[in-house]
């Protein structure tokens, strides 16, 4: 149920006027200032806003439970979110050797999406990220799950302070760990080992794993678990009838989130790799990004990396938002 009351006519009319004027201003800027083909994007957005204004006036004196301010807000949110994403796509679809100057991806060439998978630094970096972040995620989840259980249910001594320590590590500036991690790997003669890079990467993976797992355990229906136990269920039955239906999916989602969070870290990957072919994906893109000619590869690699996450977010959007939310 909405927390606000039914919008007044005055409120709807005010929102309609604002939407129309905003659209009118955008249409003028689009026609006068913005070069083609982006003019059409501005005009499209302007038309939507102006139509909102007109429709708002028409429905202002009806009993429909529609807030014109909210509709305007959603339209602006859509513009705010999607326009920069369109620019990422435009950057990725520019021809090699040229620079994109328009938001609209006209004359799109998709070669950068293929080049990412050709033998080269980006493909190697994707492999390194998969290996390093994947290994760190597995280890982090293996130790985070019992830790979260202890923090939630085992009344472990000083558990609140330990939880605060994990949360503090979550927001620790990871680049400060880069130099000592690199020095330690060098001292142990492991500087060229991609597997060894997973150990310092645990500084990124473990805190988020503990934090998210605690959130999952907090939301689980533990009274049901107590009831199952009181009924004399065996460990196997408890797993089958409580853990699998109520925890498994969320913990799987947490594992995916931990992996992508860990793989997105730039600083540790850039600091630890002594050679170019040992860099993680974000570190490689950081190095490539210094040259604007390589922006198309950076954008294409970013969109490839984004794709599985968008699929996960689409399938599990409700769980994901509630996990990150409250």
């Amino acid at each position: 149920m909405n927390v606000a009351s039914h919008p007044s006519i005055r409120s709807r009319l005010a929102a309609s006027v604002v939407a129309f004027l905003l659209g009118f201003a955008m249409a003028n800027v689009g026609l006068i200032v913005v070069p083609r083909p982006d003019t059409w994007l501005w005009l499209a957005a302007a038309i939507v806003l102006m139509v909102t204004g007109v429709v708002g006036v028409l429905v202002a004196d009806t009993r429909r439970d529609v807030s014109l301010w909210a509709v305007l807000g959603v339209e602006l949110l859509t513009l705010f979110t999607l326009a920069p994403l369109l620019w990422v796509l435009s950057t990725a679809t520019v021809a090699e050797g040229s620079r994109r100057t328009t938001l609209w991806p006209g004359d799109a060439t998709w070669s950068a999406f293929g080049e990412v998978w050709d033998a080269g630094p980006v493909r190697t970096a994707m492999g390194t990220s998969l290996l390093v972040a994947g290994l760190a995620t597995v280890v982090a989840m293996l130790v985070a799950a019992p830790a979260a259980h202890a923090l939630m249910h085992r009344d472990a001594p000083g558990r609140r302070w330990w939880y605060v320590a994990f949360v503090a590590a979550l927001v620790l500036p990871t680049f400060v760990l880069g130099a000592p991690a690199a020095a330690q790997l060098l001292a142990l003669d492991l500087a060229t080992s991609r597997l060894a890079m997973a150990v310092p990467t645990l500084a990124v993976a473990l805190p988020i794993a503990v934090w998210l797992t605690v959130r999952v355990l907090r939301r689980a229906p533990w009274s049901l678990y107590d009831a199952v136990r009181a009924d004399g269920a065996s460990v196997g039955q408890r797993l089958r009838h409580f853990a699998v239906p109520h925890l498994a999916l969320d913990l799987g989602l947490v594992t995916i989130l931990v992996f992508f969070w860990t793989s997105a870290d730039v600083a540790l990957g850039a600091a630890m790799a002594p050679t170019d072919d040992q860099r993680t994906l974000p570190a490689t893109l950081l190095a490539l990004g210094a040259d604007p000619e390589s922006s198309r590869l950076v954008a294409a690699a970013g969109l490839w990396w984004l794709l599985p996450l968008v699929l996960v977010a689409t399938v599990f959007s409700r769980r994901l938002v509630s996990l990150l939310g409250r």
């Binding site: 990422v88 994906l281 974000p282 970013g302």
Partner: peptide, 15 residues
């Protein structure tokens, strides 16, 4: 709304 957040930050920076 979550797509910008999960885009690699370095990609956002470059673009």
């Amino acid at each position: 709304v979550l797509v910008p957040l999960v885009l690699l930050s370095v990609v956002s920076v470059v673009t």
